[in-house]
Amino acid sequence: MYDADKRIQYSGFSTHTLNAYALQLKMLIGGIGDLEIEEITLDLLKGYLSKQSDRLKPSSLGHRVRFVRSLFRFAFEEGHISRNPALKLREPKTDKRIPKFLIEEDVIHLKISCESPREYAMLEFLYSTGCRVGEVQKLDIEDINLENCSAIVNGKGAKQREIYYTTECKIWIKRYLESRDDSCKALFVTETQPARRMSIPTIRYSLKKLASRSNVAVNVYPHRFRHTYACQLLDNGAPLEFIQGMLGHEKASTTQIYAQVRGERRRELYRRYF
């Protein structure tokens, strides 16, 4: 019943979200046993979560706690249990991590190491839009407006937003599209025949190959471009409200972490160059 409720509630959401709920439920049953739901106590739930705490990061344990609270809140509100045993569960405290970004030198090394129009276009798009990898993967050619350097992306929670990219990015997208002879509607496709929409792992692998070729020392992955994009906007004086809208963050607190980046960015540059 809980699974059906979430599938209705998150009907527009990524299947990854729904699969994550199903997996959490399976792990919970495996951890405490397939008991009658009225038998579940706060102590049982705490015992289950404490066993996970040794091998999970606080952020991952927090996800598990939120799932358990959500499940039993649903069961209580729907009248399946007379009391909510998860009511007093608290999430672990987590350290706010400074987002990892790429410095300008890294980006230049990556650019000059590109060997195909697809690599150029993908790199420029990630760098100049700050899109999530899932948003880029889902893009179709028809979502791109080359005249005004914009695109419509489908973000988290099936929320659409308009994003913008640079003239340099526009040039490489045009070159990439002109180099293709397939009929696939996806913006980024595989180089195999027949061409298919690139998967998220394939996009990640393509960036790893590019990073290896360019001898960039830091770890290069799609989300790092998102952090770099936000840092660059911040460095150029963009207000946090604007950055929040461009990144598609629902909560201002998610964007707030970039306010800590200025000092960290200076320290990072100092460490790398002194």
Rank of each mutant, 00 (worst) to 15 (best):
R83D: 10
R161S: 13
D43Y: 08
L71C: 04
R66K: 14
S128Y: 07
W172K: 08
L177V: 03
S11D: 10
Y176K: 02
V68C: 03
S53G: 01
R161N: 09
I108H: 05
K46S: 14
Y164F: 11
D106V: 07
I103V: 14
H227N: 10
G134L: 09
E135A: 06
T255G: 06
E241F: 05
L28R: 09
I141D: 00
S214Q: 10
I29W: 10
M1L: 07
I112L: 12
L210I: 05
A158Y: 11
I152D: 01
L42D: 14
T254D: 12
I163D: 04
A75Q: 07
N84C: 07
L240D: 05
Y270N: 08
Y165M: 02
Y205H: 14
F67E: 13
R7L: 06
A217Y: 01
Y164V: 00
S116V: 00
S253V: 12
F74E: 09
F225C: 11
L146I: 10
E115N: 13
R55Q: 08
I171G: 00
E268V: 15
F242Y: 13
K88P: 01
I173N: 11
F76V: 04
F274E: 12
S50W: 05
S14I: 04
N219S: 14
F67L: 06
P239F: 03
V153C: 03
R271I: 00
S179N: 06
Y176R: 04
C114F: 01
R175L: 10
S113L: 03
I171V: 08
V189C: 12
E119V: 11
I171S: 03
S199D: 09
P85N: 08
S199L: 13
V65T: 07
H63N: 15
T228K: 12
L102Q: 04
P99A: 04
V220D: 06
V261L: 09
L102Y: 14
R262I: 11
A20V: 04
D235S: 10
I243W: 02
H249S: 13
E39C: 02
T41K: 05
S150V: 06
L71E: 01
K156N: 04
I112V: 15
T129P: 01
L89V: 06
F274Q: 12
L56R: 14
